[in-house]
């Protein structure tokens, strides 16, 4: 299953599907980092609205994505975590510490626009 990566100005937007396997996640991690380099993006928004389960592997992958992207000088915002998923995540001790989060895509864009003072 492929994760579509959309280029929007200086940002990249990756939208997760519901049933991503580990292989999909690994592929996405590589793909995103390559694209950040290619487009010299300033930030990446990862939209997880469709994910109904966020287990330790998915969470760890998100953190790794954020970390690798930071090493490339860009920022990552995770958007669209569902309330129930957030509850399960904290039960597991998965808090995505150090990674920016926002309610949804709109909020994520607003956050980044403010941060980088970019007008689209």
């Amino acid at each position: 299953m492929e994760v579509p990566i959309l280029k929007q100005g200086a940002f990249l937007i990756a939208t997760f599907q519901a049933a991503l396997s580990d292989a999909d996640l690994n592929q996405l991690r590589m793909g995103l980092v390559q694209q950040v380099v290619k487009f010299r993006s300033r930030a990446v928004i990862v939209d997880v609205t469709a994910m109904d389960v966020m287990d330790s592997f998915a969470s760890r992958t998100l953190r790794e994505i954020a970390h690798m992207i930071r090493l490339r000088g860009a920022e990552t915002v995770i958007v669209g975590i569902q309330p129930e998923v957030a509850f399960a995540m904290v039960q597991l001790g998965l808090t995505l510490e150090g990674v920016a989060t926002a309610l949804d895509l709109e909020e994520g864009l607003a956050y980044l626009n403010e941060k980088f003072k970019v007008t689209n």
Partner: peptide
């Protein structure tokens, strides 16, 4: 969070 452990304590809490 996100350590490479077995995740069993987390499952126990869930």
């Amino acid at each position: 969070s996100g350590s490479l452990g077995l995740g069993l304590p987390g499952v126990r809490r869930l």
